[in-house]
Design a protein around this nucleic acid. Structure first.
Lengths: 361, 361
DNA sequence: TATTAGCACTCGAAGAGCGGGAGTGCCAAC
DNA sequence: GTTGGCACTCCCGCTCTTCGAGTGCTAATA
């Protein structure tokens, strides 16, 4: 367990240096950099012990040392000095986030893009929502063949659909259906929309042209879509910045995995840090494709059954502290914006003004 | 101009072979493959002439020949045998496209993804819309602090926005505003929404709480967003499949360009083919980053001021005929679905049922 | 005159061989 | 426990060589 203070310092120095240079680090380099007053020979002894303890490894005899996943783990858990971003940096991130959020409606995908830009690694963002329901239906009669369905969901997103029918529809029918749907289809989840319910509604509305089923289909679509987790990946190409991905095959495999979608998420275990950051190092990842990469994940709370993650993927030799610090700010920003009471949705297609939201707290 | 029939055959054989293998092709290989009954020596003579004519080049003395951009151009214009996809393939593409379009609302980005899947090259899709207007406003009063704006645009997309105010709003005011906006803000473009217009509307509605400006802001946002061209890139990582992008730097540069967005579009010149396919070979591209890649573009017509492109990017040695054939089907499918009268939008967030649309013509 | 076979030549790719040097492990001295 | 010293190891990068595919040319052939 307890390894000597000096070993820790040396380990930290190795990891820091390796993160910086991506090359095995030798005893002399450490003697020079870390401020512990001892000579390379001493450090060599310590390094040898760190190797036998499993924190470091040598690519081959007479090369420098490289951290093992266990070494990174130790580094992340205990040694890493928490990066305290400067005020300017923090402000810059917040400003850029605000700007993104103002300009665009697709919050989550934009924030994932921002994360990728800030860290220079590929980033991904996920949301999971549960138990979304429709709070209210409105049906706008446009002309005899056309109407618009508008649904306000429980998470304060609005969905709509323009329906164009080959037959004429009576405005009265539309009104009847509107009432019926507001009575029968609100506050229920997708699986509660049964054929039975649809049929009885159709009869009650005296609908002979199948308008009911169109609206019901929309309802199901909206509900199941809203509950489906959504994922965005951005900046896959930044992978190629990293020397460990100079091998095109390796890069290709990982990029394929990333753009493929089906992420194997880690079990929702305990967090590494109080601030909600998780670090998954190399083999700690569940997905085979990530076994020699690392993932840093920040979770945010978008209120109301919605929880999301925003994460960054890189080589095991990644700059954990900076990345963690930046993600932390992003996640906090998202929580603040999305979690506070009226929650605009992740990846939804509409906007929400919360007047007076700007700035305070 | 006119080069002998045999030269053409040989040139075609070189291009075909090079497309297949990505390696300089030698005289012997051609003698074996192409069915012209002459020996490698003869072919060598012809090859030498093709080189001096500028259709081929040699990476170095005593290597096989590789097509020049001019060679590809000749190939695309005259020699390439139009790939006639089998019925199954065509049906497969159509089926997959239908499936995508049924499942998802974001037509264009999905089709771009599909194009990338089908061709195994990165794909991009763009739309340009002009002169979109709002045809009709509806404002749904939800509660004293909340209402939903719904706008039906001239291209039959529907946009909405949930507005949440810190102050109570009178339902009457909302109704007045609804009428005023329908009278004053429909059928105009973004730049016609002047402060003057907004102010006079505000006065006419007797609005003291700034609701008018919220709706006006939404109007401007919707209109300018609808007119802005949108672009989607998918499958950047497929670039790495191509041997010419085994050099990570090269791959990185192009991928950076692709995910960067700002595409330098080719002048809207004449098309190579009657079926609306354009091929831009290597240096024919305007963008510096594309100078040694090729782009195949199909245009589709989404009716009503909307025109789009769907394209594929690959090495100059790309499989022009297959790609062109596949894009052609996709573009035709898009035109059919989007162009026919009531046009569901590109990249918009709502859906359109056109009953009875299935299949015919 | 066009085609073909033959042959010497060219040039890159792949492999072998060879320092150089960074880094180690160990030992003896402090 | 620390340090300097030193022999040793092994990768990296270099050159050198070989190998072979493919050429260009020439002379013979239809």
């Amino acid at each position: 367990m307890g390894i000597s203070e000096r070993k820790k310092k040396i380990l930290a120095a190795v990891v820091d240096e390796y993160i910086r240079t991506a090359e095995p680090v030798g005893s002399k380099a450490i003697a020079a950099s870390a401020g512990l007053g001892c000579s390379s020979a001493t450090i060599r002894n310590e390094l040898a012990e760190l190797v036998s303890l499993g924190y470091l490894e040598q690519p081959h005899t007479s090369a420098g040392r490289v951290p093992t996943p266990m070494g990174y783990r130790m580094y992340v858990n205990e040694l890493m000095q928490k990066q305290k971003l400067s005020l300017e940096e923090t402000e810059d991130i917040n400003r850029r986030m605000n700007q993104k959020l103002r300009e665009l409606d697709d919050t989550i995908s934009e924030v994932s893009r921002l994360a990728s830009q800030l860290t220079d690694y590929p980033a991904l963002a996920l949301t999971t929502r549960t138990a979304v329901t429709i709070r209210r239906f409105d049906i706008i009669y446009v002309d005899a063949n056309t109407f618009i369905i508008v649904a306000l969901l429980s998470d304060n997103t609005v969905k709509n659909k323009l329906v164009h029918l080959p037959v004429s529809v009576d405005q009265k029918l539309v009104q009847r259906l509107s009432s019926l749907f507001n009575a029968g289809f609100t506050n229920i989840t997708a699986d509660a929309v049964t054929p039975l319910l649809i049929n009885s509604t159709e009869r009650a509305a005296d609908d002979t042209m199948g308008v009911t089923s169109v609206i019901a289909a929309f309802t199901i679509e909206v509900l199941s879509e809203a509950e489906a987790p959504s994922a965005y990946v951005s900046g896959e190409n930044r992978l190629l910045n990293q020397p460990e991905f100079r091998d095109p095959d390796k890069a290709h495999r990982l990029m394929g995995y990333l753009s493929g979608g089906g992420y194997v998420l880690p079990p929702d275990g305990e967090l590494d840090e109080a601030d909600g950051i998780r670090v998954l190092i190399g083999p700690e990842n569940v997905a085979e494709e990530l076994k020699d990469s690392s993932v840093v994940i920040a979770t945010y709370d978008a209120g109301d059954n919605t929880r999301g993650m925003i994460g960054v993927i890189g080589p095991t030799r990644m700059d954990y502290s900076t990345v963690a610090a930046k993600l932390s700010i992003l996640a906090a920003g998202l929580s603040k914006r999305l979690g506070g009471g009226v929650a605009p949705p992740a990846g939804m297609h509409n906007k929400l003004i919360i007047k007076g939201d700007s700035g305070n707290e």
